[in-house]
Nucleic acid binder design. Sequence first.
DNA 1: TTGTACGCGTTATCAT
DNA 2: ATGATAACGCGTACAA
Lengths: 353, 353
Amino acid sequence: MKPSRTTPGESAETAKPANIYDVAKRANVSIKTVSRVVNRLPNVGEETRARVLEAVEALSYRPNPFARGLASEQSFLIGLLCDVPAAGSGYIAALQTGMLSRCRKDGFHLIVESLDGENPKLVQEVQALVATSNLRGVILTSPLCDVRGLIDALKASRTSFVRIAPEKPLPGLFDVRIDDRKAAYDMTAYLIGLGHRRIGFIKGPHDHGDANARLDGYRGALAQAGLPIIEELVAQGQFTYQSGLDAGEQLLSLKKRPTAIFAANDDMAAAVLANSQRFNLKIPQQLSVAGFDDSLVAQVVWPRLTTCRQPIEEMAKVAVSILTQKPSKDSVSERLLDHELVVRESTAPPGAL
Amino acid sequence: MKPSRTTPGESAETAKPANIYDVAKRANVSIKTVSRVVNRLPNVGEETRARVLEAVEALSYRPNPFARGLASEQSFLIGLLCDVPAAGSGYIAALQTGMLSRCRKDGFHLIVESLDGENPKLVQEVQALVATSNLRGVILTSPLCDVRGLIDALKASRTSFVRIAPEKPLPGLFDVRIDDRKAAYDMTAYLIGLGHRRIGFIKGPHDHGDANARLDGYRGALAQAGLPIIEELVAQGQFTYQSGLDAGEQLLSLKKRPTAIFAANDDMAAAVLANSQRFNLKIPQQLSVAGFDDSLVAQVVWPRLTTCRQPIEEMAKVAVSILTQKPSKDSVSERLLDHELVVRESTAPPGAL
DNA sequence: TTGTACGCGTTATCAT
DNA sequence: ATGATAACGCGTACAA
């Protein structure tokens, strides 16, 4: 038996933490038994288990994660990979909050990596990361979750991963999402229902799957209502406030300006609100504005935004749980979550008082 | 010499990553020499170093962080500890962005932990975390950075840590901050300079050191100008948008309402803006509003907020660098960063047109 | 049900 | 300047 390097007595002030040998000695068992108890494996007598647990408690023993990772090639780390420009958005913040919550619950830690989607060495970097970090799994956010090379690399490295809001489902992959197309369809239909006929749309980045689905939903609703799809009413945005400012200006400068503008996220919708001040447009009387996400800004601006709420934190929790609950008895049903139309003060019938 | 378990040829498809033995063999040196090269230690011949580097490159060798952590009791992990309610704020998001940036640069990873400041077992949890994670260091944000028990525990565990925006400097600790008192003083003086005499203030949480310093600066500026400090003009906030809504309502409901309101952060100031709509107050003509941070919301709202910019990302980078650059030749001067008054459209002289 | 012995990939001690 | 070898703490065949 290999002894620990501290005196047999209780822990000194700044002594090294107890290791598995200390526990084994105190409980009068082998380290293997301690290992079994700690990892909740079967084949341990009740009495023995109790003794071990007592020792664990008394010595405040914590398994060393490095030793664990080294020996088992498994860690209690989950990697969150997100595109660096997205870092400022409330969306990512909300995702992270949800992940942290679930990680705590399951005893995992979250390690966050910001990646540059434009970087040609992106795949290599991720390979290096997963090859050396033994992560239990990684979570991919948009637009990273649709980078084919990345997905292939992850597969090849046998790293399990979950994608949040991917462009399109890929066979054998774990995806968590809402029905972005349907959600945008609903919002557009709602605006049409109010009486709007010229509805502007601010797109998200090309490489965001969710953004594309929302555009699709917008078009679908127009078509369904027999309305024409007017290309000049669709402006390009990048999900950022600044891009919303530009896109909004473009739409509001049109000779025949829209009576409503639906932006693919709240940040851009908030920018349209700001624009409307400069154009001297009263919201919602002269212009209706709708966003997407129901992030914090939707309630911070005035008037508050009509938007489509997606359960961001919940999606994040589901994503983490897929990774932490290893033996997943495919509970596939949970992975498509519900959205909800949230009507506030930024929308009204066109030409309303 | 212990051989690697893969064939001598180049890496197979899903082969295990190369280890230090593979590199040593290819470069015809011992593993110790490889270690020296990888860790940039002295006493390696130029020629030898080149050979090793070539091998590292060819095999795309990455040191296994678990083995490293196990052997050296040091990791390339930095822990970010923040209070859970703060998670939604743009402030924390900006901090994290800065940290990630610097971590990348220095080859470190960031592991984020959300802690509940109210939890009585807080200290134990952190102890468990640092005891088992071998973090290179941790970064404490407000209000955690002023929890005495936490600081003591961290000290006892010999974990190095940096505090961001602490209440008061403690001897022997690394702190990164701006002069919150001076910054708030400047803002208040600016409002006084505009002609305001009744200036409301929305405080931050009691346990936030930076919040308290800002209150102090507000009072100092009033005193300096010979203005009375009216208690009913000071409302309690919690740094959240919702709390700003409540505090704003309270201040605007006063019989003698203030002509200007200075909130201790932007989120609460944005809430006051929203309030002013309900009270039918024109900004800035009938009410001036000022915030603090210059976070994203300050520019998203209308009118855009006059605020005090603090270099949040920069502070974050400095904090990380203190931890990563071990042999710190006390460059103390860098750690008190500059703030800046940012005047936008939300403030004007009282009773302006 | 329980225990022994070895390997995981690195750093570090001491030689040389 | 370089190298052989012992830790580091844990998981796990394999044995009992």
